[in-house]
């Protein structure tokens, strides 16, 4: 019935109507995904299957990064449960190695080589050590991270978990899930935790 009615109205205003009708029926998102699956090809280590969204990405994509609270809470819990903490129980590595990692923007692009360890890409988005003034602003400043929060075992665990999987704490965070994605290794994440929390790290200097 409704469709018929619309057809009648459409006849009257053919041009505008075709677009309106199409909007109601068509799922541009699905069409976009299908198009990308057709157009994006494997190059180097960046394989074609990367355009397929995973479950979490799908939820964020469908809700414009604003998932309903209950769903977000449940999925965040799932993500947190999957975080792999170091078996030796040590969460802090070497802050100097962490600083180097934070500087490196390499990793997982089609111009990166397989088997070469990636970087943390941290300065792309965050202010961290005061000595580095070329920092991005997509994420919050991490300067004084440990000084403000304290170098407690809980805070170390939080920082490790956050870097391993940022989405365990904020489902549609812009930050990658470095451990989950295999972009950073356990020992690399430890070094980054040290950069943030070690009292000797320039992050926590005066």
């Amino acid at each position: 019935m409704t469709a018929m009615k619309k057809t009648v109205v459409c006849a009257a205003a053919a041009l505008a109507c075709s677009a309106v009708l199409a909007d109601e029926i068509r799922n541009y998102r699905a069409e976009a995904v299908a198009m990308m699956k057709r157009d994006f090809k494997t190059r180097g280590i960046a394989t074609a299957d990367r355009v397929h969204e995973d479950g979490l990405q799908a939820v964020c994509n469908r809700t414009s990064d604003n998932p309903p609270k209950d769903i977000a809470a449940r999925l965040e819990r799932d993500q947190l449960e999957a975080v792999k903490y170091p078996t030796d129980g040590k969460l802090m590595g070497d802050w100097k190695a962490g600083e180097k990692l934070a500087q490196s923007g390499r990793g997982m692009t089609w111009s990166d080589k397989a088997g070469v360890p990636g970087g943390g890409n941290c300065y792309n988005c965050h202010q961290i050590s005061p000595t580095e003034t070329s920092f991005g602003t997509i994420g919050p400043s991490l300067y004084q991270f440990g000084k403000i929060r304290g170098n407690t075992p809980e805070m170390q665990k939080y920082a490790y978990g956050k870097i391993w999987n940022a989405k365990a704490f904020n489902l549609c965070s812009a930050m990658p899930r470095f451990g989950h994605a295999g972009a950073l290794t356990e020992s690399q994440i430890k070094d980054l935790v040290a950069l943030l929390l070690d009292p000797q790290s320039p992050v926590n200097s005066k």
């Binding site: 199409a22 069409e31 976009a32 969204e53 994509n61 997982m108 972009a183």
Partner: peptide, 21 residues
């Protein structure tokens, strides 16, 4: 119009190992 609408979706589409759009 279709190209614009699909492009808008591609712009917001998160995927890949870094979850970036």
């Amino acid at each position: 119009i279709e190209a614009y609408r699909i492009g808008k979706e591609i712009f917001a589409y998160r995927a890949g190992p870094y979850d970036f759009s």
